[in-house]
Amino acid sequence: MFRLVKRSEISRKKSIVIRLLAILLAFTAAGILLLTLDLNPLEVYASMIKGAFGSAYRVREVVIKTVPLVITSLGIAIAFKMLFWNIGADGQILMGAFAASYVALNYGDLPRFLLLLLMFVAGALGGGLWALIPGFFRAQWRTNETIITLMMNYVALKWITYLQYGPWKDPQAMGFPKIPNFTANAVLPKLFGVHVGWLIMLLLIVIIHVFLNHTKKGYEIAVLGESENTALYAGMNVKNTIVSAIFLSGALCGIAGMIEASAVSNTLSVEVSGGVGYTAIITTWLGALKPLVILLVSLLFAALLQGGSFIQTAHGIPESTALLLQGMILFFVLGSEFFIRYRVILRKE
C-alpha cells in the first residue's frame, strides 16, 4: 500500500509549514468539539483573540503571563536537552517563591535594590536546591526522575499550604488564611507599564541561548542527551554535568517563582505558580528546546490562557477549554513530527 522513507534533510521552511498545519488542525479538531456544544467555533476563537489582544490592558496581561512561562520553559529545556524529564517545575517555582518570600517577609526594610537582589538569589537557590534532590538521585543511582520530580510538586504544594494556614498566616487578616503582603520595597518595579520581569526574561533568553550553544557545559549537556556512553567515552564527568545542569534548571524555575510572588501576587500563596510548571512542559517541547522559539510559543500560549479566561466570562465556556486546546495542539504537533522525519510514498500496484 505505502511505504515510509526516512528523510535525509528537510528544508526549514517545509518543517515550519508542517508544524503550522498541525496547529491549524488542532484548532479545527477543537472546533468540532465546540460545535457539539452548540457553539460557533469561529465566534469563540474570535473572542479569544479579542480577549487576548483587544485592549492595552489585555496585551499587558498576556505579557505578564508570558514571563513565567518563558523563564520556566528555559529551565525545563536545559533538563530535557539532557533527557532528564524534569516535570517538577511547578514545585521548583513554589520553592523559589517560598525562599524569596522568606527574605521579603523578614528583611522587608532593606534598601530596595539590595532586597530585590537578595530575593532573586534566594529564589534561584530555592528552586535549584529543590531540583537538586531528584538530580542527585538520578546521577547517583539512576532513579527515575519523572515520578520523583512530580511527587515533589505535591510535597512543595502541601508545604506552602502548611505555611499559609499555619506559621506564616497573617494575624491581621481576620482569620482569613493568607500570608502577609510584601513591603513596597520587595515588589519589582514597573517598566513601560509591565513589571520589570519581562526585561529579566529577555536577558535570560540571551544568556541561556549562549549557554546552550556556545559554552563547554552547554555542549556537554547536548552530548549527554544524545548518548551517555559517548559522553563517558569522551571523558566527561557525567554525574557532575547532570547535577549542575539540574541545579540550573531548577534555579530558573525558582526565579520565575520569585518574580510571580514579588510582582504579581505581592505575597506567597498556593496559587503562585498557577499551573505554569505544567504548561511550560508543552511550550518547551513545542519550542524545540530553543530559547527564541520558546518565546514565540509562550506568547501564543499566554494569549491562549488569557483568551481562555475571557471566553469563560463572555460565553460561559469552561476555562479548561484552554487546557484541552493546549493538549490537542501538543498531540497534533507531536504527530506531525513523524511527517518531518519520514516521507510517505504510495506504492502503485
Binding site: W85, I87, T146, Y278, I281, I282, W285, P318, E319, S320, T321, A322, L323, L324, L325, Q326, G327, M328, L330, F331, L334, G335, E337, F338, R341
Partner: peptide, 26 residues
C-alpha cells in the same frame, strides 16, 4: 502517536495527562 507515528513516549504521555485534565474540567 507513539506506535504508528513514533512520537516520543514521555512527552506524548505528558500531553495525554494535560489533555485528560482539560477534558475532565470541560
Amino acid at each position: 502517536l507513539t506506535i504508528s507515528l513514533r512520537a516520543n513516549q514521555v512527552v506524548s504521555g505528558l500531553a495525554l495527562t494535560i489533555f485528560g485534565t482539560g477534558f475532565s474540567g470541560f
